[in-house]
Amino acid sequence: MNAQITADEARARLDALADPKILAVNERHGDDHAVNLTKLRALAKDIGADQELARELWAGGGSAARLLAILICKPREFGRDELDAMLREAGTPKVHDWLVSYVVKKSKHAEELRLAWFADPDPVVASAGWALTTERIAKKPDGLDLDGLLDTIEAEMRDAPERLQWAQNHALAEIGIRNPGLRDRAVAIGEKLQVLADYPTPPGCTSPFAPTWIAEMVRRQAE
């Protein structure tokens, strides 16, 4: 651990790791960081947890710096409004996804933010609410209106913007996988909407098309 590293030194180390080939690949997915994520994680491990540095790196902007900030921060030390502001300025898909997965999900404000973001008019913010809802479906479903979620998905998912559509599709799959009593309905909704039915899926990988995804996960559970 290097507790004495400054934000400028951390950024210099990120700059030294930048690779134009990595940037070119990431740009095809809407991201703009040029650092290999394995190397980024190694740098974070070398620095260790440092909340003050994490806040400095986030405030200074730049996707690589913000990804590093996410890896070295202490999630429970962020306030509710601070996390809300961070999500709205996250910018790229990778920063957004890591912030939700590595920080917000571990925060004491996760449920409050889930409820606030779920119906936000900004579809990217709403996608974070759906991601947190999917976490609840998988781990703490008590109190969730799963039938109501399926109603919303059936009504909205086909025409939803891409990031929101992906998040709703994940929720649909998790409902079908985790709830045998709702599985037929979840599959039927997926078949009706055909969202991601033609998504190119490499050999050996599971299609994100909900009916296929549900069937494969249920099959694995039965093994």
Rank of each mutant, 00 (worst) to 15 (best):
M1Y: 05
A3M: 07
Q4I: 00
L14C: 12
D15T: 08
D15S: 08
A16W: 10
A18Q: 15
A18E: 15
I22A: 12
A24H: 10
A24T: 08
D31G: 04
A34W: 13
V35G: 08
L37I: 10
K39Y: 05
K39N: 12
L40R: 14
L40M: 13
A42Y: 05
L43I: 03
L43V: 03
A44Q: 07
A44V: 03
K45L: 08
K45D: 13
D46C: 03
G48T: 08
D50G: 01
E52D: 09
E52I: 00
L53I: 06
A54M: 08
A54W: 11
E56K: 15
G60R: 15
G62C: 11
G62K: 13
S63G: 05
A65I: 02
R66N: 04
L68T: 04
A69D: 06
I70L: 05
I72D: 04
C73R: 03
K74L: 10
K74G: 00
R76E: 15
R76M: 09
G79P: 09
L83Q: 10
D84E: 14
M86Y: 15
L87S: 02
L87F: 08
E89G: 01
A90E: 04
P93H: 10
K94Y: 12
V95L: 11
H96Q: 11
L99G: 04
V104E: 09
K105R: 15
K106G: 00
K106Y: 12
S107F: 11
K108T: 10
H109D: 12
H109R: 07
A110I: 01
A110S: 12
E111P: 00
E112M: 12
L113H: 02
L113C: 02
R114C: 00
R114P: 02
A116P: 05
F118V: 01
F118I: 00
F118P: 01
F118R: 15
A119L: 06
A119T: 11
D120G: 00
D120C: 01
P121R: 13
P123M: 06
G129P: 06
W130K: 03
W130F: 09
A131I: 02
L132F: 12
T133Q: 06
T134R: 15
T134C: 12
T134H: 05
E135C: 02
K140V: 07
G143Q: 11
L144S: 13
D145R: 12
D145T: 03
D151P: 07
T152M: 13
T152Q: 15
M157A: 07
D159K: 14
A160W: 10
P161I: 05
R163D: 05
Q165S: 13
W166G: 08
Q168W: 08
A171G: 09
A171L: 04
L172T: 06
E174S: 13
G176F: 11
N179W: 03
G181A: 07
G181M: 07
L182V: 03
R183A: 07
A188M: 07
A188F: 10
A188I: 05
K192H: 09
L193D: 10
D198V: 00
G204M: 11
T206D: 13
P208N: 09
T212D: 13
T212K: 15
T212I: 11
T212G: 01
W213I: 01
W213Y: 14
I214M: 11
V218K: 12
R220E: 13
A222S: 14
